[in-house]
Design a protein around this nucleic acid. Structure first.
Lengths: 348, 348
DNA sequence: TTGAAAGCGTTACCAG
DNA sequence: CTGGTAACGCTTTCAA
């Protein structure tokens, strides 16, 4: 009794037999058309089409060592911020003849490393989005296989990241222009490189402009985290709040609303990412926008190039794309409120 | 000069040599542990671990005909509604030892079919989410490989779908209780089974409750589509609007706001899906909620079972999970406004 | 330009 | 319980 496996529908051998040529000729006619006589080639191609032949990816991978599959690993698939990245990556993967597999690390470095190791044998390379891994671990993976970082930069590793320096400067200048003198930065996970860049950029720009900024956190980079963070921000009493990302900003917004605090009357809020919803929350969110779909496409292109280079044992200098960011000013930021009369010290 | 392929790091042969046993024994020790003597097994496993052995998915797939890979195809990866489905599917895929590949059909039946055909040779089965294909095409795919439908039912095909009949009843009763007498349904794509169910359920419940409902559309199931749809709804003058999904509802909401129409003062709006953002738009959206992450998990479980059945040539009756839905009442629905004094006919 | 045949890494069958 | 050895389907030398 034959084993109950699903046989690969129609194989190259079927095509070869039907076309009256050797399998090697079929292989060539289909993958290296120029290495085959025109009439042979067309004949083979027709037969293949007629029979509905589809090459077995497994067999091809076994022979070539390449799977035509790319992996995209993210800390939180449900964060709308990543939707654009996923779509961009998926489209470009398809355009370059690749399949995209997806992995969620749940904001967890260990899970991310496990995911990479689990996926590694079956893919040609990795797109690591907002990786929570250490630089050392990333370098280690990068040494073993093609890796492109998105939203992260590590020396000597190919990457695509949004310009945080310019972005944070825009934010700070916007707030200063509105008369704010004290701001709070609600920090996300310490593992977030983008978060660290944001804090660094804000601190530096703030110093330059005489804005006092205090960092609170870390908080989980979600609406729930923003709820907590918003509470803490309220207690501090700054007139401007810069959240690690829009999810947190929206959470903070919710909390302000619940507490009867007017945004932007009493406090202004700024986020990062310009995610779905940032334009229709109440008030709409002022936020730093970047083109995630484009980043996804670029990242795939870079990764595909890396895979090819590896196959040829060549090595270009790693590319480092820094994509522009743009502050989208909406209703959540406004002029700083007039400072309250200072309470006499000791009168409490 | 050796070809520049990436060799599969450490193979079963390496392990066999190092452990002093045959490759077949290694294979068994690792995949059918009970078919091997305890001490041999443990020895082999240790050696494999020490060498960092990872089976080649390609080689395994070639031999067994199974890839341990599942595909999830969706009409729009960026619709937040699908985020939960993606996450649920991804988690359960991981839990069952599978890899999840993702495909976006861009609301296009032809693209969806192409995607399925493109992915088919490399996966064990398909999760078709909100498929835009015809029943006939789905049956055709289902005959050729394991398929689980999500958000769609087709006779004899395994599926997981939210209870639209109960859901639409809840919506209609809610509106009727608020005193609405005329409503508009803003339709999505005709290819959407869920959309057709929604219209059917609403019509039927409306008739029962004496609510007049008119259908407008079809519109693209996006915020942009909702903008257009909202305009049309305004022109019609009904007091309640039921949108194909939350994306459209939010678009309609935006348009109302822009037109100075009060929601829910002048018109109430109801959506479907309870997506991210439905709770913080202005006003928050009354919408029919379903558990997408759970649906994703269930769908993967069903698909894995199908794959196993196929391998054993067994065939259970196809499962049809209908998951409960729940109306989440928020600020976008309220009492119907008092009817305006009827204008005298002919006085225009 | 084409054919024959040697892998690629696993699994599964068949002996022993 | 274990070893040897065909497959699995394709690519890629190597010859002709």
């Amino acid at each position: 009794m034959p084993s109950a496996r699903r046989p690969h529908a129609v194989t190259i051998t079927d095509v070869a037999r039907e076309a009256g040529v050797a399998v090697s000729t079929v292989s060539r006619a289909l993958t290296n058309p120029d290495r085959v006589n025109v009439v042979t080639r067309e004949h083979v191609q027709q037969v293949a089409a007629r029979l509905g032949y589809r090459a077995s990816p497994a067999a091809r991978a076994l022979g070539t060592g390449r799977t035509a599959t790319l992996a995209l690993v993210l800390p939180d698939i449900t964060n709308p911020y990543f939707a654009g990245l996923i779509r961009g990556a998926e489209r470009q993967a398809e355009a370059t003849g690749h399949i995209l597999v997806i992995g969620d690390s749940e904001e967890n470095a260990r899970a991310e490393a496990r995911m990479v190791e689990r996926l590694a044998p079956g893919v040609d390379g990795f797109l690591l989005g907002s990786s929570r891994l250490t630089d050392a671990r990333i370098l280690q993976f990068d040494a073993a296989m093609p890796v492109v970082l998105v939203n992260r930069r590590v020396p000597a590793v190919t990457s695509v990241s949004p310009d945080q320096q310019g972005g944070t400067r825009q934010i700070v200048e916007h707030l200063v222009a509105l008369g704010h003198r004290r701001a709070i930065f609600l920090a996300g996970p310490p593992e977030s490189w983008l978060g660290r860049q944001r804090w660094a950029g804000i601190s530096s720009a703030a110093k330059k402009h005489g804005l006092k900024v205090k960092r609170l956190g870390p908080y989980h980079p979600s609406v729930e985290g923003g709820l907590l963070a918003g509470e803490a921000a309220l207690a501090d009493g700054a007139t401007a709040v810069i959240a690690h990302n829009d999810l947190m900003a929206i959470g903070a917004l919710k909390r302000m609303k619940a507490r009867g605090v007017s945004v932007p009357g009493d406090v202004s809020i700024v986020g990062f990412d310009d995610i779905f919803g940032a334009d229709f929350c109440d008030p709409p969110l002022t936020t730093l926008s970047d083109r995630t779909e484009q980043a996804g496409r670029s990242a795939v292109d870079l990764l595909v190039a890396l895979v090819r280079e590896q196959a040829r044992l060549e090595h270009d200098a790693p590319a480092d794309i820094v994509a522009p960011t743009q502050l989208v000013v909406r209703g959540s930021t406004g002029p700083a409120p007039a400072p309250p009369l200072p309470t006499t010290p000791g009168s409490s």
